[in-house]
Write a protein that binds this DNA or RNA. Structure first.
Lengths: 186, 205
DNA sequence: AGATTACTTTTGAAAGC
DNA sequence: GCTTTAAAAAGTAATCT
């Protein structure tokens, strides 16, 4: 009986920050190696870090979005790299820009197969979305924590929309007890 | 004041014209799909409810009309797949699917997942398969779904595999291609579902 | 008949159309 | 609403060998 909480794995962390300075993305694109910038397509410049692996979207306003990191520590490390790269280009970057985690995507495993049809009825058709013709996962929105869970027939699930790692743990706890109450987890 | 009066009439007329257009589109698509009048009526009711709840704002009339028809077919127990619906609509499959999910949620339609068995009579008759095959296919669907094999699988692919298996068991063999064509799924999907189903049924050959 | 690649769903921020 | 980024889940699909 492994606790489903122990199977939780952070798959992606999205965070936003800013250097407190406006940027000339055209020149940054010229000087920064590996930068992708196509303002016709998207206003942000894309810069990828290798270690840790992530993608940073850098905007004219100096605001930055970092995504793809596997932990909040990795987000900070990735952004530290981005900040240093910008400083190398003689761009002023605030000392310790505030980094706000906007979304954490995690995966977990309930350890047993799920009858999604029964779960759809059990949780209440008005509380879920389950359209296997369009997507194999059952979409379950929780109010507290405010996250969205995708439940699969294998018993694996994805929790997204959370802002702290604890949100996923609480969500898994609630889902497990809910399914146990309904007798749909055995 | 006269201006406002005229404007009201103008918008009322426009709204009336839009409603008539939507209803005629539902009629046209329903005819093309060959669904009974009761389904068109249910679709019309759903469309009017969506209009009343102001769910059409930001969406195309045709998209909402098509989604209403898709929902109505399911509600009446004679589902058409999104693939089939999109063939008679000028709205693409993905848009029909997302609009359907939206109106379904907002109107609280509480749609149950489609039962693959609902596709068996129509697919089997298109394939000219006997009543015996239909019964066998329903048996396969019933039994394997009870064992949890249905979770996450598309109803059309599931039904197609069961029909293919039943046609073999009843010596009325149809090829995977033939079944795939009427169900509008790939042979790969039929193969995958078929393998799971016969294994769960304890059938060989 | 595989294997690969790619698309479906959810989430969040950024700036601009 | 769209555009872009990354990531997981599992099903379906297109394409190539």
């Amino acid at each position: 009986m492994t606790d489903p909480k122990d199977t939780i794995n952070i798959e992606n962390v999205v965070a936003s920050t800013g250097i407190g300075q406006e940027l000339d993305l055209q020149s940054v694109a010229m000087d920064l190696e590996g930068a992708d910038y196509d303002p016709e397509q998207f206003p942000g410049l894309v810069y990828r870090t290798q270690n840790p692996k992530s993608a940073a979207l850098i905007f004219r306003s100096g605001k930055i979005v970092c995504t793809g990191a596997k932990s909040t520590d990795d987000v900070h490390e990735s952004l530290r790299i981005v900040f240093d790269k910008l400083r190398e280009l003689q761009i002023q970057v605030n000392e310790d820009p505030e980094i706000v985690v906007q979304n954490i995507v995690t995966s977990a495993d309930l350890g047993r197969n799920l009858n999604l049809n029964a779960i759809a009825i059990g949780l209440g058709l008005e509380n879920i979305e389950y359209e296997p013709e369009q997507f194999p996962g059952l979409v379950y929105r929780l109010d507290d924590p405010e996250v969205v869970a995708l439940l699969f027939g294998s018993g694996k699930l994805v929790i997204t929309g959370g802002k702290k790692p604890k949100d996923a743990e609480h969500a898994v706890d609630k889902i497990v007890s809910r399914l146990e109450d309904l007798g749909l987890l055995e | 004041r006269l201006r406002k009066w005229q404007e009201r009439i103008r918008t009322k007329d426009a709204g009336e014209r839009n409603l008539q257009f939507a209803l005629s589109e539902i009629d046209r698509m329903a005819s093309a799909l060959g669904v009974p009048r009761s389904v068109r009526e249910v679709a019309s009711v759903i469309y009017r409810r969506a209009l009343k709840e102001d769910l059409i704002r930001g969406r195309s009339i045709e998209g909402v009309a098509t989604s209403a028809l898709y929902a109505a077919c399911r509600k009446e127990g004679i589902p058409r797949s999104l693939e089939e619906i999109s063939e008679v609509s000028r709205v693409e499959r993905k848009e029909i699917g997302r609009t359907y999910r939206y109106i379904s949620q907002e109107l609280g339609l509480e749609m149950r997942p489609v039962d693959p068995k609902k596709y068996v009579p129509r697919f089997c008759s298109e394939l000219e398969l006997s009543e015996e095959v239909q019964t066998k296919a329903n048996e396969i669907i019933e039994k394997t779904a009870e064992e949890g094999l249905l979770s996450g699988k598309s109803p059309t692919g599931y039904a197609a595999a069961a029909i293919y298996a039943a046609s073999l068991l009843c010596n009325e063999k149809k090829t995977q291609r033939e079944v795939a064509d009427v169900a509008q799924v790939t042979e790969v999907t039929i193969r995958n579902r078929y393998q799971e189903q016969i294994e769960a049924m304890g059938i060989h050959g």
